[in-house]
């Protein structure tokens, strides 16, 4: 069967193509995962649906519900968006750690999410931020928390015909901020051995009112670690709170043991990164 390349102009057209086409249908965003897998012969699409010509998927919009980032917006463009960078520095720094300038010129955070790698950089940052995916499908629209998209490595909860249209970041609270850190042997062009993201909001006197903590590459998918958030909520990020945060992170880790990092190493580094990310987010939120 000859391969088809489609570049729909609208989301409904894309959904129609995805749900009605026969054979193996794949969404193409930046292609930095999809084309690599095609080259390696791991997948052989029958239909490739390029979403980059869909106008609504190409914009970053500030709405009452928060920032809406179109699924075709490249990570490089996130870095160039001053307001977004100010509101969600952790998301932007995670997106701008992906690959090289070349990769960032193409790749998207929606693609990063839908690729469902446990080491995806932007995913913990999105989880910590409380982001959700706006999904369009044959049965209409649904909004799903980002942590519920990946199921296991390479597998998502998206159904046949569905496409992520945009990522929605919740409205930015006053005195809040986020941060993302990863450990890689090389400073660039490497995949996270462990990563951590923290997003928090400060109340009166710098007490943490709300927080979300996420870890990457320590389990089959990026984790939302609620006990870790609980450990720092109500604190001013004193040493005791930080230690509790670390302990909660360690308890959540269920990493693999491979040549890039042993279980012991990954668990240890997850704690260190979570503490550091919390401190950075705290400072960014105005904590003193």
């Amino acid at each position: 069967m000859p391969v088809l390349y489609e570049s729909p102009q609208t989301t409904p057209e894309a959904v129609a193509l995805l749900s009605k086409s026969k054979g193996k249908v794949h969404v193409l965003a930046g292609g930095s995962d999809l084309l690599v897998r095609m080259k390696g012969g791991y997948i052989e699409p029958d239909v490739i649906v390029d979403i980059k010509r869909i106008k609504s998927m190409n914009v970053i919009k500030k709405t009452a519900d928060g920032f809406l980032i179109g699924a075709a917006v490249s990570c490089a463009r996130l870095g160039e968006h001053a307001a977004l960078k100010k509101a969600w520095p952790g998301i932007v720094e995670a997106a701008n750690l992906i690959g090289s300038d070349q990769i960032q010129g193409r790749c998207t955070i929606a693609g990063n999410l839908c690729n469902a790698s446990p080491a995806a950089d932007s995913v913990p940052a999105m989880i910590a931020a409380g982001a959700s995916a706006i999904i369009q499908g044959p049965r209409g629209e649904r909004q799903v928390a980002v942590e519920k998209i990946a199921k296991s490595p390479g597998v998502t909860t998206l159904k046949k015909g569905e496409v992520v249209e945009a990522i929605l970041l919740p409205p930015k609270q006053k005195k809040s901020s986020d941060a993302y850190l990863r450990f890689t042997p090389r400073t660039e062009m490497d995949i996270a051995v462990v990563s951590a993201a923290v997003s928090l909001t400060l109340g009166a006197k710098g007490v943490i009112e709300d927080a979300r903590v996420s870890l990457g590459a320590v389990a089959p998918k990026a984790l939302l670690v609620k006990p870790a958030a609980k450990a720092i909520i109500g604190s001013t990020l004193d040493d005791e709170a930080l230690e509790k945060l670390a302990a909660a992170c360690a308890a959540a880790c269920d990493p693999i043991d491979d040549k890039r990092g042993t279980i012991h190493f990954r668990t240890k580094v997850a704690q260190v990164l979570a503490k550091r990310a919390a401190k950075i987010a705290w400072q960014r939120a105005g904590g003193k």
Partner: peptide, 29 residues
């Protein structure tokens, strides 16, 4: 490499720096 790792295939696509091995020919339309 053909997989975005080496940058030898770097080009500009509408001004953006990209690896041409990770772009489909059809996208250049």
């Amino acid at each position: 490499c053909g997989t975005g790792d080496c940058g030898a295939c770097s080009i500009r696509l509408d001004g953006a720096l990209v690896c041409s091995c990770l772009v489909l020919g059809a996208e250049a339309e």
